[in-house]
Amino acid sequence: MTAWFWYALFIDIAAVTTMAVVIYYRRHRRSDLMFAYIALNIGVFSVASLMLTQQVELAVAFGLFGVLSIIRLRSDAISQREIGYYFTALALGLITSIGSGHPLAMTGFAALLPLVLYIADHPRFSGSVERCSITLDRVVQDPAELEAELSRRLRGRVVQTKTDRVDYVRDTMLVEVKYRPWPADRPVAPVYADR
């Protein structure tokens, strides 16, 4: 293997570590996705580098990565923000493996992509939206009442809700919630308000 390969591998590892650990994990605290981004990136880099040494057509390589993307995105419910990180990890692996013949362009793009994610996902621009799943001890069918109940329990403004499961026998429901926490000094209503 040439010195350019090792240089490209070093740039790839530095870029994906910056993206997955320094930016994504520090802001969103999901170690499972941090691991997935790094593993995907290293896998893409390895496969693309091997394909280039074996003179495989680039169209075949992109076709394989397209299939990989579809399988991953259909296998788990992830947010649009996480999809952005996912495709950036994929792009970094491709850029660094294919671009080893053009080290300046490769290094520039490998630095640019994490920088763009850092800015685009900065709390100042994207807001501090948190996400969680909550099991309610009753089924709430009215959207306004559900939003008020979740707002009281989470002590924040509900941005989006998605009902994952309703159990009428046990009178429970599982809801995925995105919300913005209220400031710490804001008075809140009791969590278990009268029904």
Score class of each variant (00 low, 15 high):
180 R>V: 09
26 R>D: 08
93 G>R: 02
186 R>M: 12
43 G>A: 02
182 W>T: 07
185 D>V: 04
84 G>E: 04
15 A>C: 05
81 R>M: 09
192 Y>M: 13
147 E>V: 04
149 E>C: 13
102 H>G: 08
96 T>E: 01
148 A>W: 06
156 G>R: 04
37 Y>L: 06
106 M>L: 14
132 C>G: 15
173 M>Y: 00
4 W>C: 11
51 M>S: 07
18 T>H: 12
57 E>D: 14
155 R>D: 03
186 R>T: 12
190 P>C: 11
38 I>G: 03
150 L>Y: 11
52 L>A: 14
137 D>P: 02
119 I>E: 15
150 L>Q: 00
124 R>I: 13
137 D>G: 08
33 L>N: 00
162 K>M: 06
168 Y>F: 13
158 V>F: 09
82 E>F: 02
170 R>Q: 12
43 G>M: 00
128 S>N: 05
41 N>H: 13
186 R>I: 14
34 M>K: 01
4 W>E: 04
34 M>Q: 04
27 R>A: 02
86 Y>C: 14
23 I>S: 00
169 V>M: 07
94 L>F: 10
18 T>G: 08
135 T>A: 15
23 I>V: 11
11 I>L: 11
53 T>W: 14
33 L>P: 00
89 A>V: 04
171 D>R: 13
10 F>Q: 08
2 T>L: 04
59 A>Q: 15
88 T>E: 02
106 M>I: 08
144 A>L: 10
